[in-house]
Nucleic acid binder design. Structure first.
Length: 274
DNA sequence: AAGCCAACCTGGACGC
DNA sequence: TGCGTCCAGGTTGGCT
């Protein structure tokens, strides 16, 4: 579900209800996510604490509190929603934080690929995954990071875009969309692409992420992604290739093609993308 | 040693 | 209605 624009959308919609507020009650179910929820440590470290900041690193969300830090990853199907306590809890609600303003922040994740752990601040940098993230594609240095990684890699360029140790936050939708906007085939070997075209790709990555963020993210027909208020984003209407197999390319009319590359779909226009 | 692949889960869409 | 198949926004660990 969630790539950088979706996670950032969640962060922005959640922040006003978290930052500066106190957690008055923690309800946590012991359940194995990618990293299991430990109810006892959640209660001990988070009950009564005040949230100081809500940050994003790649696709991770990080809630800094007075004595601990909560680390979240939404995996494929994770949501964080804000609800009144009397509103019914949807299936697969694994964690509920009751805030001092009376609303609940609920972490819901049917497929359980997500992460919801409490750490001490000094444990953050050694956290596997979080500690190895590459540069933020919306920040400085992303052109250079992508150029370096592409020049080194014999893999298809799509694999480089998905490598979180290079750019932190791209996923399959926006990797495909950036390649479409740059006119580059997802199958092309990274180091066979000229430095100039990699620069075009870097610009396309940034543009597509910014536009998606402005649209509040991408919600596919299954309605999987929602922000903290439960609303979907509307970037799906601007997708050029993702999920459009067989439909005409917006640029040239040729049928969009789908192939499976390292286990995941790539969508591209065989005429516009080389 | 980089890069492929299966595995981790549940649910929705689709065909019969 | 139901049942089987395929597919999914991510990451990891094991293999070659």
């Amino acid at each position: 579900m969630p790539e950088l624009p979706e996670v950032e959308t969640v962060r922005l919609s959640l922040a006003p209800h978290l930052v500066g507020h106190r957690v008055v009650k923690v309800e946590a179910r012991r359940i194995s996510l990618r990293e299991g929820i430990e109810p006892a440590s959640w209660r001990a470290r988070f009950t009564g604490t005040r949230i100081l900041a809500l940050e994003r690193r790649g696709k991770y969300l990080l809630a800094r509190a007075e004595r601990a830090v909560a680390l979240f990853h939404l995996g494929m199907s994770g949501r964080m929603v804000l609800r009144r306590p009397d509103e019914s809890r949807e299936a697969h609600t694994h964690l509920v934080l009751r805030m001092d303003h009376g609303l609940e922040v609920r972490f819901v994740d049917p497929r359980r690929f997500g992460v919801a752990v409490v750490l001490r601040a000094e444990e953050l940098e050694t956290h596997p995954g979080l500690g190895r993230l590459g540069v933020d594609p919306l920040g400085d240095g992303m052109h250079e990071a992508l150029r370096r990684a592409a020049a080194r890699s014999r893999a298809p360029i799509r694999s480089v875009l998905l490598d979180q140790t290079v750019l932190a936050g791209l996923g399959n939708i926006y990797a495909n969309e950036a390649l479409a906007r740059a006119g580059i085939s997802p199958l092309r070997r990274a180091r066979a692409i000229s430095s100039k075209r990699v620069g075009v790709l870097a610009a396309a990555v940034r543009r597509v992420l910014e536009e998606a963020l402005e649209a509040g993210g991408t919600t596919l027909r299954d309605g999987g992604f929602v922000n903290a208020s439960g609303d979907g984003g509307y970037f799906s209407v601007r997708l050029l290739v993702y999920g459009r197999e067989g439909e005409p390319c917006v640029g040239c009319g040729a049928a969009i093609r789908r192939r499976v590359l390292t286990g995941r779909s790539v969508f591209y226009c065989p005429r516009c993308q080389r």
